[in-house]
Amino acid sequence: MSARVSIGLAAAGVVALFAALWLGPTPLANPFAGDEATRTIVWEIRFPRALVAWIVGAALGLTGAALQGLLRNPLADAGVLGLSGFAALGAVLAFAFGVATLAPLGAILFAFAAALVVTMLGWRTRGPASLVLIGVGLSSFAGGLIALALNLAPNPGALSDLVNWTLGSVEGRSMEHVLLAGGLLLAGAALIFAAGRGLQALTLGEEAAAAIGANLTRTRTLVVLGAAACTGGATAAAGVIGFVGIAAPHLVRALAGHDPARLLLPSALAGGALLVSADIVVRLLPTDAELKLGVAAALIGGPVFALIAARLASRGGDQ
């Protein structure tokens, strides 16, 4: 079942990637035409942009599924829990202080710190609500620190660019970003997939998972490192994009069931397809200035998040 869902979602991602080559503010009859203008638009602008969107969506979808399994909480997500906010802080610090080449490293390190804090605080929280509150606290803290860093930055000229960047976008991304986010996605995915069986065991709760033989320290370490790599890479490439990590696993559960290990791959594939599609919509909207992808994701994902939270609360899961 989960294999068929994965194939379907991979196909959806490929279709969305092709559509992204065709569709855009400049209509193209044939994106594979040989003329210079078409080649530039398609292969230097649209293709890297769409690929970055797919990679970022996949990284966030995978991170969401892994964090939900680890924390046994369907509202866990890199954005909601503050990993993305901290990753952005790490990158902003590097940009603002003139060492832009260290931005990806800063994003990963700060995402790692946030993942560590949130899993330590969230490990024993009872209901989804308290975990989300921890995330709200961390996100606000990261937002405050970003503002502080921008205020103290020695190079205020780049400020508006940076603020824009934290809103989340894949506009103007190049193959360099593809390699960066893609490499980190691969590394993060390797770590997270290695934790799959531990996540499965955690279905029984912490105590019984250990009793059936799961090494929970190993599972936690793998997920925290994997989530940091995926979120760090995604945020360094595209800024803060929220809710993909909630929407993708939620969608996949309806198709492939609830087993946390078998959710990982389809959630990544769903996240990729979702974000490429959202980016196509953003590019086609007839607005003067292009709507930020992070804003669009929040417009779609915010209500989905509220809906899941309300449903959990009505089921008494919010204790």
Binding site: R72, G205, A208, A211, D259
Partner: peptide, 27 residues
């Protein structure tokens, strides 16, 4: 190790949980 212990003893804690609604046979 957790695995060595699990091969020697099966432990059913008080108030066991199934956080995700797996099928009975998967649990």
């Amino acid at each position: 190790s957790p695995r060595q212990r699990a091969l020697k003893a099966a432990y059913l804690p008080q108030r066991p949980q199934a956080i995700w609604p797996l099928a009975v046979e998967a649990l």
